[in-house]
Amino acid sequence: MKKLHILESLRGAASIYVAIGHWILSSASLSGLLRLPFRFGQEAVIIFFILSGLVIFYSYEKGSDKTLRTYFVKRARRIYFPLICALLVSVIFVSHTFSVKELIGNLLMLQDFETGKPGNIVNSFLGNAPLWSLSYEWMFYLLFPFVYPVIKDKPSRIHVIGLFSVVNMVIYILFPNHIFLVLSYFLIWWGGLEVGEYFLGDRKKSRPDLLVKYLLLIIGILMVKTAIFYTGNHNVQVGIYPYLVLRHFGFALLCLAGIIYLTNITKALVNVIKPFYLIAPISYGIYVLHYPIWVQSHFEMNPVLEIVTKIALVAGLAYIIEMKLQPLVNKLFK
Rank of each mutant, 00 (worst) to 15 (best):
T226N: 12
L87M: 13
I16D: 06
G12Y: 01
K334A: 02
G201C: 08
V304F: 08
V236T: 09
G32V: 06
G220C: 09
E306C: 11
L4W: 01
L210V: 02
Y71I: 09
I79Q: 01
I259C: 10
L325K: 04
V45P: 03
S184Q: 07
I286L: 13
V91E: 14
V170D: 11
Q42H: 13
I265L: 15
N106Q: 06
L217V: 12
I259R: 02
P292Q: 14
S184M: 00
S99Y: 05
G63I: 02
V55G: 04
F38P: 04
R157C: 09
I321M: 11
H290A: 12
Y17V: 11
Y80T: 14
S297G: 07
A129C: 06
T226S: 13
G239P: 06
F113K: 12
M301Y: 03
I92W: 14
I50N: 01
L256Y: 02
K310A: 01
Y214C: 00
V314T: 14
Y261L: 04
E102A: 06
I320T: 13
I282L: 03
F40M: 11
K267P: 09
L278M: 14
G162W: 03
A318H: 14
T263M: 07
V212A: 09
V236I: 15
I56C: 04
V212K: 06
F98N: 05
V18A: 01
K62D: 00
V304C: 06
V100Q: 08
V272F: 15
Y261R: 00
H248L: 10
F81C: 10
I320V: 15
L210A: 11
W190F: 10
V167T: 12
Y148D: 03
I16E: 06
V91A: 10
R35L: 09
V314N: 09
Y80V: 14
N177A: 12
P176C: 07
I50Q: 05
S90A: 15
V167C: 12
F146E: 07
P145R: 08
G232E: 15
N168E: 11
